[in-house]
Design a protein around this nucleic acid. Structure first.
Lengths: 172, 172
DNA sequence: AAAACCGCTTGCGATATGCAAGCAGTTGGC
DNA sequence: GCCAACTGCTTGCATATCGCAAGCGGTTTT
C-alpha cells in the first residue's frame, strides 16, 4: 500500500484504489465477461482502453490485491488474471452502481439487462454469483447453477432483440 | 450530457460521471457531513481538496443533476448545495463501497463505524436515511428519527474513545 | 474603517491520459 | 524450417488533468 492518501475513511481508501475511469471497467470485464487474458481485455473492451493504461491498471490491481496472475500452461507468453476474494467481494458494489446507473443515466437496454437482473435478484443472487466466481477464479467447488450463464444469456437475447428490431422496424 | 463515452453500459456511464478521486468525496461530505457551503466543503475536508478541483467538481455535479444550488438568504455571497433525488439515490452505492473498504482496506475505527452501522442496518436503514436526506435537501416532511444523528453520534463517540485511549494508554 | 470571510479564478509545474508504433519471444500453418 | 500471426507489454510524444499557492471583487463582522 502507498501512503499517498490522507484519511482512513473507507470511502476515501476505496477511491484511492478504484477511483478512476478504468479500474472498475477492467474488473467488470473480468467478472462479467470472464476475460482472463491481456489481449482479451484489450481487444474486446467496449470502451476501447489503451494498452498502456490496461497494463498499468492490471499492475495496480495486482499490487492492491484485487487480482492475481498465473502463467497459462497452454501458452508460454500468456498470463491468466483471476479475481481474488477481495475482487469478488466487489459484486455488491457493482450491483449498486449498475442499478443506480440504469435508473438515472442514458443506458442502452441490452447493456442494462444484467444490472436489472442483479437488482431484482438482490443479495441472494449476488451470493450465488460470488460462489460461482470463487469456482471460476479460486478453486472453489462448482455451484449447481450458473448465474453468469443466466446473465450472459439475457444479455445476448437483448442484443438479438435489438438486432431483430433494427432489421424489421415495421413489426410491432 | 457529453458524448465523450463509448458504451451505454450502466457501469461505464456511472464511471464517466463519478469515476475520479474527488466527486464521491464531495458527495460524501454533503451527504454524511451535511456540508452545504463551498467553504465548509473546502475547509472541513479530511482529505484536503484543492479549491479549483472543488469548484470544478461542484460544477460537474450540478451539470449532471446530482446536486442543485440555491442562494443563501442570510448571506448574499453564499450558495447552498443540495442533493437531488439522483444524488440521494447513491446511498446504497456508498453503503456498498464503504462496507467493502472497511473489510479490505486499512481504515481507522472511527472512520469505519458509520460504514459498519450502514452495513448492519441494511436496505431498511438506507431507506430511512434517504427519507431523511429528502427532508434535509428536498422539501420532504421530517421523518420521526434521524439516522444522520445516529451515525454522527456513533462517529463522535468513536473519536472520543480514540482520544481517551491516546491520553490514558495505561487503561484497559 | 479595518479585518475577516465569501465563492471562485488564475498561473504554473507536475502528473496522468490517450494514441500510435514497436519489441522480443511464441505459436501455428504449410 | 519458414514466415505470418499473435503474445503481453513498453516507449515516445502530444494533450488533458491535477494540485498547490496566490489572488480577486465583493460582503459581512467588529
Amino acid at each position: 500500500m502507498k501512503e499517498t492518501g490522507r484519511s482512513g475513511c473507507p470511502i476515501n481508501l476505496t477511491l484511492e484504489i478504484l477511483g478512476d475511469r478504468w479500474s472498475l471497467i477492467v474488473l467488470r470485464d473480468i467478472m462479467f465477461g470472464n476475460r482472463r487474458h491481456y489481449r482479451e481485455l484489450l481487444a474486446k473492451s467496449d470502451e476501447g482502453i489503451a494498452s498502456n493504461i490496461l497494463a498499468d491498471r492490471l499492475k495496480r490491481l495486482l499490487e492492491n490485491g484485487l487480482l492475481s496472475r498465473r502463467d497459462d500452461a497452454s501458452h508460454k507468453q500468456k498470463g491468466i488474471y483471476s479475481l481474488t476474494e477481495m475482487g469478488i467481494s466487489l459484486v455488491p458494489v457493482f450491483a449498486a452502481m449498475a442499478d443506480w446507473g440504469r435508473r438515472f443515466l442514458p443506458v442502452t437496454p441490452e447493456m442494462s439487462i444484467r444490472a436489472e437482473i442483479l437488482a431484482e435478484g438482490g443479495p441472494a443472487l449476488w451470493d450465488r454469483f460470488m460462489a460461482e466466481l470463487r469456482f471460476l477464479h479460486l478453486e472453489a467447488p462448482r455451484p449447481a447453477q450458473s448465474v453468469l450463464d443466466e446473465l450472459t444469456a439475457a444479455y445476448l437475447a437483448a442484443v438479438e432483440r435489438r438486432r431483430a428490431a433494427d432489421v424489421e422496424p415495421e413489426a410491432v
